[in-house]
Simulated scan of single mutants.
Amino acid sequence: MTEHRRTDTRHAEAPAGQAREHSLRIERLNFAYGDTPILRGIDLHVREGEFLALLGPSGSGKSTLLRLIAGLESPTAGRLDASGRPVSGPGTDRAVVFQHYALFPWMTVVDNVAEAVAKAHPRLPRSERRARALKQLERVGLGEVGGNHPFELSGGMQQRAAIARALALESPFLLMDEPFGALDPINRAKLQDLLIEVWQGSTPRRTVVFVTHDVDEALLLADRIAVMGATPGRIIAEHSVPFARPRQRAALFKDAGFHRLREEIAEALDADTLAHLEAA
């Protein structure tokens, strides 16, 4: 198992007049519900433009960590900065895509996305907001269904709409909580490919934090994987993903290096599970 090496987390503010780096820095972060510890001692640096996967079993706190980054929860202790500023609550700089699509059911798909455009550009006239929303829907292959309501779309199409809405915020950070977990394998693969296509085609690239419990998904999508163990949640290993982009699924799954890394990650997770069972 690869030993987890803590990242240098010294903090530096951007000089006056210099653009802020859209990175995340997490230092000695703890989180608890009452007396129940959920996360302990999280140290993590996510570089600007990096695609990081948070990988772990249920109960490892990976979704809770994402909610903390999104500002939907507050740490019990430690430091959490986005773009050099402490995270003190939700913000349009951090777009979130949940597993369950969270679209407004009373709005058409284009109006759902236009709401996000309005948050990013509140002074735009309604016609321009809708035009920009339609462009985002076209990016995810939904240009023909903007006038439909979410309940008229399949699950895969609803998640495409949720991704379009997140992109419409023009946020430097994209936070995704098992966004494809509820989909069938074919739609899941299609949306994985779509996500990478959109992310690689964006300038500048967004900083992505992607929660998953699927090792293959993490290896296919991410630049780096933070493996989380359970009870309380903590990072037990970090792995750089060495495979060149663009990645072809069929070729990747035949690669001996892919199988070695997948086995190494699986062994780390199994060892953590066994340690907890023996301690119980």
Rank of each mutant, 00 (worst) to 15 (best):
R85W: 03
G233L: 05
T36C: 08
A279P: 04
P90A: 11
V96W: 02
T203R: 06
L169Y: 10
L103H: 01
K135I: 02
R260S: 14
T92M: 12
N187T: 15
P57H: 10
G61A: 09
A32S: 15
A12L: 10
Q18R: 11
M157H: 03
R6P: 04
M157L: 06
R247H: 11
R132L: 05
P90M: 10
S63Q: 02
E27W: 13
E27N: 14
R123Q: 11
R85I: 07
V87M: 05
Q159C: 06
G141M: 08
G181F: 05
F151Y: 12
F151G: 02
A118I: 02
A218C: 12
E3T: 12
Q18I: 12
E27R: 15
T64N: 06
L169G: 00
H100D: 13
R205G: 00
Y101M: 01
L24S: 01
L103P: 01
R10P: 05
E152V: 05
P37Y: 09
R262I: 05
A268P: 04
E238L: 14
E48C: 06
E21P: 00
A268N: 04
A118H: 13
F210K: 11
A32K: 10
S154A: 10
R188K: 15
S23M: 04
A275M: 12
Q248R: 13
V241D: 11
S171L: 00
I26E: 00
A256Q: 14
E238T: 15
A164T: 02
G34L: 13
P242W: 07
L65K: 01
S171K: 03
N187L: 11
D43K: 11
P150I: 07
V209Y: 01
A53K: 02
R28L: 05
K190L: 11
R139P: 01
V97A: 04
V198C: 09
T207H: 00
G141H: 02
R25K: 15
P232V: 14
E21V: 06
A280F: 12
E27Q: 07
E50I: 06
I236H: 04
W199N: 09
K135V: 03
R94F: 00
G181D: 11
E267M: 09
E138Y: 01
G229E: 08
L55A: 06
W199Y: 12
R28I: 03
A222W: 13
A12Y: 04
R262L: 07
L221F: 11
P37C: 15
D177N: 09
G59V: 07
H11L: 15
I186P: 11
A102R: 09
A118L: 13
A164M: 02
A16E: 10
R139A: 09
V209I: 13
E21H: 01
N112D: 06
L80Y: 07
N30H: 15
A19V: 03
G34P: 08
G78I: 07
L103E: 04
R40Q: 15
D35Y: 13
I38P: 02
T64D: 14
G61Y: 13
L54A: 10
L175N: 01
T273H: 14
M228H: 13
G41L: 14
S74H: 15
G229M: 07
F258K: 09
V113Q: 00
Q99S: 04
P179H: 02
E144F: 05
A14C: 10
V97K: 00
R67F: 06
M228S: 10
L24D: 00
H22N: 11
